[in-house]
Simulated scan of single mutants.
Amino acid sequence: MIHEKTILIVDDEPRTREGIRKTLEEWSAGKNRIQTAASGVEAREWLASQPADLLITDVRMPELSGLSLVEAIQQFPGKPAVLIMSGYADFNYAQQAIKLGVVDYLLKPIDKEQLLQTVQKALHVHEQQRRIQTMEKMVDPKLIDVRERREQRGDTPIGEALAYIEAHLGENMTMREIADSLHLNSSYFSVLFKEQVGLNFSEYLTRKRVQRAKELLVQTAMPISEVAERVGYQTDKYFIKVFKSLEGLSPSKYRHSVHEKN
């Protein structure tokens, strides 16, 4: 059975642990996978071998506390969102939890409605973070270099050209047209563009179009032909050829590979 999300509950008190599990299973109605661990050590080992979307852990546990557990999993791939539970309104615990990026801090005894609201909030936060991470991984390193160069230089005619390209990616455009709009000789514009951007005009335009295409492929269910049109290619055949030359795989395979990883 395919589950939407995996939630791990960690508490050394069996009654609390099982109470939360039961509440979440009733709410989930089989959609999500609800797991439990009786100690921080057990939870750390579990998370080292498989991912979770949400970790709900008690603060005070023998051997490995909840906060130590959260610290221990910071470098794990696919780090879960975290909710901390405690029977004590301890400001220091709350402060440390915030520093570790914990979504919320629940005081025991935990109200069922509050638990469910907080769990849904934490899962939403995790989903947003996952999307951001996915998009960051997709960014062309050469385009990151361009952005850094631009930040160092400030406003120039080339900055205007880049803004125009960004706003009109789906349209036909030539270097001469942009140079003319900036009242620059096209040969001079070409040299200036390469000097300030680090890429020639056509390579930059291609990389920007493929970058936008990657975003559309991952964020929408848009057909390949429509993605091609949206990023300025008149035929999907040529778009696929260009995309494959930069990414090493076709747009449809790229879409599938990113969705598979997530």
Rank of each mutant, 00 (worst) to 15 (best):
K142Q: 13
L184N: 03
V210G: 00
D145A: 14
K121W: 08
L143S: 01
L192T: 03
N200H: 06
M173K: 07
S187D: 08
L162R: 00
G154W: 04
S186H: 14
K121S: 06
R153M: 14
F193Q: 00
G154C: 08
R153D: 03
Q133W: 14
D155G: 04
L192S: 06
E160I: 07
Q152W: 03
Q128L: 15
T174K: 13
I132G: 09
A213M: 05
E148W: 07
Q219R: 15
G159Q: 09
L192R: 10
Q152R: 14
L184P: 02
V197Q: 00
G154M: 07
I158D: 00
E171Y: 10
E160T: 12
A122T: 05
L205N: 13
R147W: 10
D145C: 10
S186N: 10
G170I: 04
Y204E: 02
K214I: 08
T220C: 06
L192H: 02
K214E: 02
S181P: 13
R150D: 03
L169D: 02
I178F: 02
E127Y: 09
G170E: 03
F201R: 00
N185C: 14
D145R: 09
K121R: 15
D145P: 01
M175W: 05
Q211L: 14
K142E: 13
Y204L: 15
Q219W: 06
I144T: 08
S202V: 05
E160P: 04
Q152H: 09
E136S: 15
A179G: 03
L205K: 13
D140L: 08
A161P: 01
K194I: 04
S187R: 15
E203P: 01
P141I: 02
V218P: 00
A122W: 00
V146D: 02
T174I: 11
I132L: 15
I165K: 01
R147S: 12
E148L: 14
V197E: 00
T134Q: 15
Q196R: 09
V125W: 03
R176D: 12
E203T: 09
R130G: 07
D180Q: 12
S186L: 05
